[in-house]
Write a protein that binds this DNA or RNA. Structure first.
Length: 370
DNA sequence: CAGTCGTGGCT
DNA sequence: TAGCCAAGACT
């Protein structure tokens, strides 16, 4: 068990380890507040490698806060496409506008002002204040929680209130004044690289201080919480082609994939075939009478707590029918060319279908007559 | 405060 | 294959 008189030793070991082992990351070059902010938002619930790829592309298009504030949301969404949790990018946009209008375009340095920005909670506010501005504040993420669950052998779920209070209190006591930038990153990087899901205790500079290591149960910490049930669902969607163009519609501004363009479709109900479902869904959502021209493929993908099997069809209008839909599940619609389809933002499952279609030779004849 | 909000990779 | 993530915020 680490005692308060050992805190300084432990934090020194962490700082030394970090200096020798930190990964070279784009936002670690200059610690520009804007870079730190975008990186922290992108890395929420996201793996490092993907985050870096999106970060690099983002910065090529949007080099500073004002370019974000002035950008159209559709453009930001397109840069975020495939990364998930899209409220993050909407909040990034809102926050950039707040910085432009209320902070003169300069990223605020005051903790309360940072914390007040849309999309920034306790963790991210602490991360920006410490990493960008080197202020003596803590930031506790899942990595830090895991490290402390092991160091102090916390035998109840770490998220419990008393555990979080203990961790925050202890991190605060360990934080070496004037070195929060390095210390907070050291703690998180240590959790990510060494004290990871499968801990590398034989390489760990803190193993002699670690209660779970002494007990031989580091892999049993943190105590797992009950996981949400993953539901398998079957859906059907269709690629409705008319006069060489494809029908898409815009999702509502709330809920999953808010404001995204998509192909109509929905769940395959009990006692219903996917073919029946796609026809029914088009009728319910657009009042288009469609007929199935051909089956394209089956796409498997997942989101939040669902595993989706998506049956995909080529569709045409069932009879001579106006290409004007009656919208029941969308806020707008478009008939687009394949090139235009590449430019709109689609949910990853539909994007997967589009990628499949690029190689589908049956597509060309359908798109010819216009 | 428990539910919602994505995704591709890893084992 | 199917589960399980990976630097949370918001309601």
């Amino acid at each position: 068990m680490i005692t308060p008189d050992q805190y300084q030793t432990v934090s020194n070991l962490l700082l030394i380890w970090f200096e020798a082992n930190k990964r070279p990351l784009p936002w670690r070059e200059h610690y520009t507040p804007y870079h730190v902010w975008v990186s922290e938002i992108m890395l929420q619930q996201t793996q490092m490698e993907r985050g870096v790829a999106y970060f690099t592309r983002w910065m090529q298009e949007l080099p500073d806060v004002s370019s974000v504030a002035n950008a159209h949301e559709d453009f930001l969404l397109k840069l975020w496409e495939g990364l998930g949790y899209y409220s993050r990018v909407r909040n990034l946009h809102k926050a950039a506008k707040v910085i432009a209008t209320e902070h003169g375009g300069i990223f605020p340095e005051d903790y309360a002002a940072i914390r007040a920005l849309p999309g920034i909670g306790d963790y991210t506010a602490g991360a920006i204040a410490s990493i960008a501005f080197n202020q003596d504040v803590i930031c506790v993420d899942a990595n830090v929680e895991r490290v402390f669950a092991r160091l102090f052998d916390i035998d109840t779920p770490v998220k419990q209130k008393h555990n979080m209070e203990f961790i925050r209190k202890t991190v605060t006591a360990m934080l070496p004044a004037g070195h929060a930038r390095e210390f907070n990153q050291a703690l998180m990087e240590f959790g990510a690289l060494l004290c990871s899901k499968k801990p590398k205790c034989h390489l760990c500079p803190l193993n002699l201080f670690c209660e779970a290591y002494h007990l031989g149960i580091p892999h049993e910490r943190p105590v797992p919480v009950a996981k949400k049930e993953i539901k398998n669902i079957t859906v059907a969607t269709g690629f409705l082609v008319h006069n060489g163009k494809v029908y898409i519609q815009k999702r509502p501004e709330t809920g999953v994939w808010a404001g995204f363009w998509e192909l109509p479709g929905g769940s395959v109900e009990k006692d219903e075939t996917p073919e029946e479902a796609v026809i029914r869904e088009f009728m319910e959502e657009t009042e288009f009478p469609v007929r199935i021209h051909d089956k394209i493929t089956i796409v498997k993908h997942g989101y939040t707590t669902y595993r989706v099997t998506m049956h995909c069809y080529f569709l045409t209008l069932a009879q001579e029918h106006s290409p004007e839909p009656v919208l029941h599940a969308a806020t707008a619609y478009r008939w687009v060319t394949m090139d235009e389809l590449d430019e709109v933002t689609l949910p990853a499952g539909h994007r997967k279908l589009l990628d499949h279609l690029q190689t589908d030779l049956r597509l060309a004849p359908l798109l010819e007559n216009s």
